[in-house]
Design a protein around this nucleic acid. Structure first.
Lengths: 329, 329
DNA sequence: TTACAGTCTGGTATCGGTAACATGTCAATA
DNA sequence: TATTGACATGTTACCGATACCAGACTGTAA
């Protein structure tokens, strides 16, 4: 690698002068500036960003954590974050926690020693009390996750409202026995959904039946599993809030194969309005969520706060969602 | 941030001794070692990896480029790479090129100044001649891409064989008018598929019809588009090699809605054996590709070569694929 | 003529670690 | 007793950049 000293030597100037040229400082004569630029080009010199990072104590990099990248929701979220970051000239380090507490801590260490300037948590594996101490090292932001006492910006959907809308829709369609799927039950964001679900039920004098609640439902496979479990119940729900289009697709497919008609025998509602909703038979009624927008807003907010070294304050943004009615309800 | 000097001062030793403890060097007395470890724990000290990286001139980080992360194929590929990298204690910087030549060059610059130690190219936007000069800065590896003259390891599927198998299957089912979809037509990996496609046709005295070739087909939406374009043809194909499960799903859905029966009027074969194949109606015949395995092997090969500073040699690995017959053919 | 501000340039310390080399101790060996 | 080598520790340079301070030169106002 060519380094700044070599350029300096070739131009008979000090490396300070070369550095000034690189950083567009005034007070460099036109003549030397041109000469330095010429030599830089000739030698194809790129300054070491590692050295710069060390010196400046910042990295122009942010990290985002997700449980796993291969779920459409998270890959789209990341895409949103990345596109905004790219626009603002930040790099993005993507971290998959694989639902692992220790991996998440490793990522937080990146913040501690300034390998990244800030972090977006798209997953929350540890207790908040474990994460809190890292706030002094740089900004952290919750995206698509929720915590009631975290003193950081939180940006997500109005999960409560979304679930309420979805379940109300099922009730309007005449259903009285409604099931509920969620992914990680300990997640507070999932709790909010559950509260919305329950509110809609209670408003219509319906009960929340423990047997109709399913956990860790995230993928198409999980949808298969949920349908199988559900089928074995003596008293089966006639409608399902799945919390996830993949799960909805899985349930619907298994149902159709089993001769259970959707939506007549079983209505199913998804979440996120992924394209998969449009290719199943029947197509899937769902909640439209602006995922890319979510990612972009999160990244924008983080970047805005990277300059200041004031700690970020709690602030909850809930993006609106929309019910999209299709054939599965 | 606590730094190594502070630890040294607190322990009344030199920072070299602290460094020795950190790096598990021998020749540190048990007594001092324990004392240092104790103080490190007390002050919650983490060494700056930025400083380490600068000093060692390596970063324990690899980069992988993909066109966009939100396509299931690429997110699964990345997952494979990441899991292997995590296991070997490497970080992964994920780079989305967004099909952009300049963004790809930016990533290559990371290699030049050792922000990353090596690169896996899962996308290939620039001409190889633009990429080749970067080989002197560190190992580069092609994954799921192909280039006939690149002197680097290439790891992908046997695309030729896969397409050949798929199309032969369609022909066995009695089809004589077979269409072909690909994503970026300039990609040499796509070319290999096309050659396999053509070989199967020629062996059965069939022609490759220009009107039945579709470009830039990647997503469900693209599948919708392809079906629409196809429908407007006077002479329509009766079978489609889509090169991609999403495209297959899109085509199938539009076909069914339009009253075109699958597979009777139109047979469709996918590629990658994504879960989506199992939730459409009809389910999708496809080529099973071990995507995670591909990513893991790529990462493993790269890591193996990061230690040595010898340039990597050309070496082509083609993982086998398998035909999975379902209802769409 | 002197003083001072503005322009241009270089020397040196610094970011936070690690490596090479030097030094010193102590016990085993010749 | 002198020599050797294993062990233990510290001093100093270095990775590749930038920031601060100081010095030199120029032009204009006092």
């Amino acid at each position: 690698m060519t380094k700044i000293d070599e350029i300096a030597k070739m131009c008979n100037v000090s490396k300070t002068t070369v550095s000034r040229v690189l950083n567009h400082h005034p007070y460099v004569s036109e003549e030397k500036r041109n000469q330095v630029l010429k030599v830089i080009k000739e030698l194809d010199y790129t300054p070491s960003s590692l050295a710069r990072q060390l010196r400046a104590n910042k990295s122009q990099t942010m990290a985002i954590s997700v449980p796993a990248i291969d779920h459409p929701f998270f890959s789209q979220l990341i895409k949103g974050v990345s596109s905004k970051a790219l626009e603002k000239d930040y790099k993005v380090l993507i971290f998959q926690t694989f639902y692992n507490v220790a991996t998440e801590m490793e990522m937080l260490d990146l913040l501690k020693n300034k390998e990244v300037d800030g972090i977006i948590l798209g997953a929350l594996e540890n207790e908040w009390s474990s994460i809190k101490p890292f706030l002094k090292y740089g900004p952290i932001l919750l995206c698509n996750e929720y915590h009631d006492s975290a003193a950081v910006p939180i940006i997500g959907y109005d999960e409560f409202d979304a679930a309420y809308k979805a379940v109300s829709h099922l009730i309007e369609r005449g259903h009285k026995k409604i099931g509920f799927c969620c992914d990680t039950p300990s997640s507070q964001a999932q709790q909010l959904r559950k509260e919305g679900f329950i509110k809609a039920l209670l408003e219509n004098d319906l009960q929340c039946e423990e047997d109709w609640m399913f956990d860790h439902a995230f993928s198409i496979q999980d949808g298969f599993r949920v349908f199988t479990e559900m089928s074995s119940l003596a008293d089966k729900p006639t409608a399902m809030f799945t919390g996830n289009d993949q799960v909805a697709a899985g349930i619907i497919k298994k149902a159709m194969v089993a001769g259970c008609r959707v939506p007549d025998d079983l209505a199913v509602i998804g979440y996120d309005n992924q394209f998969i909703c449009q290719v199943t038979t029947p197509t899937i009624t769902t909640i439209d969520t602006p995922i890319a927008e979510l990612g972009q807003q999160a990244a924008a907010k983080l970047i805005k706060n990277l300059g200041k070294n004031a700690e970020m304050k709690r602030e909850v943004v809930r993006l609106p969602t929309k019910l999209i009615v299709r054939e599965s309800t």
